[in-house]
Design a binder for these strands. Structure first.
Lengths: 210, 210
DNA sequence: CCGCATCCGTTTCGATACTG
DNA sequence: CAGTATCGAAACGGATGCGG
C-alpha cells in the first residue's frame, strides 16, 4: 500500500521524485505553501483531482514527512493539512519549476487556484526593481493573507495582521488578471469583482510602475 | 500516445508539470543534461524503465520541445537524443530537486547512473570552498567527459579535451563511492575499479581536503 | 545490437456515488 | 464536510518480436 513505487536510484533527484514525483503531489504542496488548508479547500483549488486522489496523496506525503494534519480545536472541530518544516523546503523546487513553466503556453480552460495566484503575486513582488514596503491584506476564498514587504523582501503569511495599509477582497482569477494587467484595477473595483478597504487606489504591491 | 494529461491549471508550476511531470521524464532529462545519449545508453542508465516507456517519454518530451533527436553521420549511423536549449534550462529544476532529495534516505538496492554521478560530481565541485581549477577527463561507460574548472566555476562537457591534467577511467558506482569517500581512491586504483592516466594521485576535483 | 512496436498482467488514475 | 467504495480508463512494467 504505502509501497510507493520507487525509482531505486541513489541519485538525490530520483529520491526527491520518489516522494513528490507522483501526479498531483507538487500541486498539493503548492496549495499548502502559504498556510494550512482543509480537505475541501484543496479540492476546490485542484478541480481536476478526485477525492480519492487527494486522500492518497495527503497520506503519502504525510508518511514521507512532507505534510502533517492537525485537528482544529472546537468549535471548528475540522482537520487542516499543513506542510512540515521539511515540506516547506520544497519552496525552491516550486520556484524553479514555476520559473521554467512560465514560458510554456497556458492550457485552454485553465483555472487559477489560491496557491497559484499567491505564488505569482510573491514572485512578481520579489522580482520588482524595488520591492514594495508595507503591510497589506488580501482576502481570497474567504481567507485573509498578509503581504509583508520589508527590508527588500516580500513574504506572504496566512491570516490578517493589524495595521495593514489596505485590504483587498477578490477571487484568485481576478487577482491573477490584475497581476497580469494592473491597469484593470479600477474596472475590477467598479464591476464589483474586487473590493478595497482602508485606502484609495491600487495597493503598491500591485502597481508595476517602476 | 502523446495524450499528455494536462492539469488544466494556468499556474506556471502546473504548466511545467504538464511537460515534465510524468513518471521518468525528469530522470531522462537528468541523463541528457551533460550531453547527448543514445537509446541504449538511456536504458542502461534507467534500469527500471521499460523500452516502451522510454520511447513514449522521448517522443513526448520531443513534442514539447525539450528533447530532440539527431542521426549521427556514417559510419556511426545511430541516433542520439539531446536536450534542446529549452530543455537545458531545466538544470535549475534538477538542482533544486537534488538539493531537497539529498536528505531523503537512499533506496535499498539503488543504482547509480551516469547522469546521477555527473550531477553529484558537479555539485560537490561547485560547493567546494575553492572550486578546483584545471582540466580533467573522466571516462564512464566508455564515454569521456571533461571537467573544466576555471574562474571559480565548474562545468562538465561531453568528450575529451586536449591538455587534460589527468584522466580517470571508472564506472558510475565507483565514482559515486569515491565522491562520498575520497580516501578510498588508492584502494580503488589497486583493485582495478579505477584506472588513472597522466598524473599521480587523486585528481584535485576529487579531494575534499580544503 | 539498436530503435521501436505489440501484447498482456498489474497498478494507478479519474469520475461518480455513497456514508459517517 | 471529510472522506470511502466502486468501477472503467489509462498508464506502467515486463516480455517478446521485428526490421535495420
Amino acid at each position: 500500500m504505502a509501497t510507493s513505487r520507487s525509482y531505486r536510484d541513489r541519485c538525490p533527484v530520483a529520491r526527491a521524485l520518489d516522494v513528490v514525483g507522483e501526479r498531483w503531489a507538487l500541486l498539493v504542496v503548492r496549495e499548502l505553501l502559504f498556510g494550512p488548508q482543509r480537505f475541501s479547500e484543496l479540492r476546490r483549488a485542484l478541480p481536476g483531482a478526485s477525492t480519492n486522489m487527494l486522500t492518497d496523496r495527503l497520506r503519502e506525503l504525510e508518511s514521507h514527512g512532507v505534510v502533517e494534519h492537525r485537528t482544529l480545536p472546537p468549535p471548528a472541530a475540522s482537520t487542516v493539512y499543513q506542510l512540515t518544516e521539511r515540506g516547506n523546503k520544497l519552496e525552491g523546487v516550486l520556484d524553479a519549476l514555476g520559473g521554467w513553466g512560465a514560458s510554456e503556453p497556458e492550457p485552454v480552460g485553465g483555472s487559477v487556484s489560491l496557491g497559484a495566484v499567491l505564488m505569482f503575486l510573491r514572485s512578481l513582488a520579489r522580482a520588482h526593481v524595488n520591492p514594495p514596503k508595507g503591510l497589506w491584506t488580501v482576502i481570497l476564498e474567504g481567507q485573509p493573507w498578509s503581504i509583508i514587504g520589508r527590508d527588500g523582501t516580500v513574504e506572504i503569511s496566512p491570516g490578517a495582521l493589524p495595521g495593514a495599509d489596505s485590504q483587498l477582497e477578490t477571487d484568485p482569477t481576478t487577482l491573477n488578471s490584475l497581476l497580469l494587467d494592473p491597469a484593470g484595477f479600477d474596472s475590477a473595483i467598479t464591476h464589483g469583482r474586487a473590493v478595497l478597504h482602508g485606502a484609495e487606489g491600487a495597493p503598491a504591491w500591485l502597481s508595476v510602475a517602476d
